[in-house]
Write a protein that binds this DNA or RNA. Structure first.
Lengths: 203, 203
DNA sequence: ACCTGAACACCGTTCAAGT
DNA sequence: ACCTGAACACCGTTCAAGT
């Protein structure tokens, strides 16, 4: 598990192959298959390994709104530190790691006083948003390895957006100016707050 | 393009290989590579092909809230009809198809009267939620081919949830009862409405 | 019970050679 | 300009054989 995470963190998700892992552990592929059913289970276990730590740390917060914040930011930071988690989370909604997040979010949704029949839809809405961000963030990370060429990459995307047809893409052209300077973290928090406001209002 | 979509719809995303496509078109792999850079571009083009149609159909609606509804449901229905779109959308946030959705959503967010500095975060929050659902829905579709064993599959998931430790997973155990009977479409709409309520309130 | 590692059945992609 | 298809450099997974 640790060896797998090490490879994923150092060289990205494509670098984790059974051959790379067997080389790293000086073993045969059969040895790994004895402990894990397939590659998907390997990735899911590695993801759960990290998310589990994030969740237990976020448990302390007593205020439900704040708890959802810390919880969501915990997931965000985990994805930031290990971008491959983002792809894995958005790939399979029923893996253990997602279950942990659902429990954490769901508990706070309950504490928020959301009526019982709305709790499932409310919690999964938050989860969907978080997983959506996860996938997007992972995709960005795949393009840009270092933070140095991140701004460069966003600049290139923005330049492409500004060359779109003004009649067809007025909005995209307008936000192209904000894109290179925008803060992912703030953007994520804004989304969480939007949903929290919706929850509060609906209640 | 049509041949690729045909294969994807009939046998799922794993079935689209260059070998399957060349066999279907009675050509060589080089012929495809002449028109498309790589597999990712092929998938992105196929996705854009379908999303483009959805978007132009949703343009008519004058009321911005209703427009966001039709637009989101259009994407949802497209994923329902072609589950591979879900994976593809959540994989790359900067592909053409996502840009189309962003423009559609962004325009309505503007029409909703959201202050200029909040429009980007608001529109991308909606996009993130939609892409999050896209990934999850595609994952479900990967597990269950027909709708017949969908309920069966959800029942199995729910049964697993109910066997979790009551102390650690109280919320998940509680919603396990609702899971098998729940309606994805309604769940999706509830999420959209939650965000729309948040937008309205913030304004 | 757990590990070895060759072998199998695939992939995406390239590129010299054709028309 | 566009296509052919063999060849390359990989994959995940299996399984007889070992300890």
């Amino acid at each position: 598990m640790e060896a797998a995470i090490e490879i994923l963190d150092k060289d990205g998700e494509d670098a984790l192959t059974f051959r790379a892992l067997t080389a790293h552990l000086a073993t045969g592929s059969g040895a790994i298959y004895w402990h894990v059913a397939d590659k998907h289970e390997l990735l899911a276990a590695a993801t759960d390994h990290i998310i589990a730590r994030v969740m237990t740390e976020a448990v302390k917060e007593p205020n439900p709104q704040d708890a959802i914040h810390t919880l969501a930011m915990g997931v965000f930071d985990a994805i930031d530190a290990h971008p491959w988690i983002g792809s894995q989370l958005s790939r399979d909604p029923w893996q253990d790691a997602v279950l942990r997040i659902l429990e954490g979010v769901g508990g706070r949704v309950q504490a928020l006083g959301v009526p019982k029949q709305d709790q499932f839809n409310t919690a999964t809405a938050l989860i969907s948003f978080i997983l959506g961000i996860a996938g997007q963030y992972a995709a960005s990370a795949r393009f840009v390895a270092s933070n140095a060429n991140r701004t460069e990459h966003l600049g290139a995307v923005a330049a492409k957006w500004e060359q779109l047809d003004p009649a067809e893409y007025p909005f995209v052209r307008q936000v192209a100016k904000i894109l290179p300077g925008h803060d992912d973290r703030e953007q994520f928090l804004a989304g969480i707050n939007l949903i929290l406001t919706g929850i509060e209002r609906a209640r």
